[in-house]
């Protein structure tokens, strides 16, 4: 059971997750694009991990990252935690339907899911905690996502071949 957990690819993905998490929660006023990039990369990596290396351990990991993202970025727990857990559980119980899709379709599903996660996090923060939906931030996230999506998939596929 733990062999899969300790494979070199999984370790690399978890390192990417932790580094992008660390960069996302530390705001750099003069290098704000790094924050956007790391925030996007974190979501992408998590989705990729869930799609291609699904293991039950991803549930507690998403739970912890969701809590810490909420504590550090919002100070109240909900939006990230709900989004991550809902996504992981939805995938966990619908994976048999996704097996039929081609690689290209899955790439687009991942792109759509990442965007959907950004929007739902902003919406939940707005509904629960009165944080206004910042369209400028969302556009920057979308812009960054479109730029880094295919290069990241390319890097991820290289990591997979390690």
């Amino acid at each position: 059971m733990f062999r899969q957990l300790l494979s070199s690819q999984i370790i690399i993905y978890h390192l990417i997750l932790f580094l992008s998490f660390s960069l996302s929660v530390n705001y750099f006023v003069d290098l704000v694009f790094i924050n956007y990039l790391s925030y996007v990369l974190f979501h992408l990596t998590l989705i990729y991990l869930v799609f291609y290396f699904l293991h039950f351990s991803i549930v507690p990991i998403s739970f912890l990252y969701g809590i810490f993202f909420d504590i550090f970025l919002i100070d109240y727990i909900s939006p990230h935690l709900i989004c991550f857990l809902v996504f992981v559980f939805l995938f966990y119980y619908s994976k048999k339907y996704l097996l039929n899709f081609s690689a290209k379709t899955i790439s687009y599903i991942m792109l759509g899911l990442t965007l959907l996660m950004f929007i739902s996090e902003a919406l939940l923060a707005n509904i629960f905690f009165n944080y206004p939906i910042n369209y400028q931030n969302l556009s920057w996230l979308l812009f960054t996502l479109l730029i880094v999506f295919f290069p990241s998939l390319f890097i991820f596929s290289k990591i997979d071949k390690l």
Partner: peptide, 22 residues
């Protein structure tokens, strides 16, 4: 493009999983 789809889910110890999920 992403790799072709392959899920490596391990379904062992159902009780532990259900307990953890709860």
């Amino acid at each position: 493009m992403a790799l072709s789809f392959k899920v490596k889910a391990i379904s062992r110890s159902r009780f532990l999983k259900n307990f953890l999920v709860s």
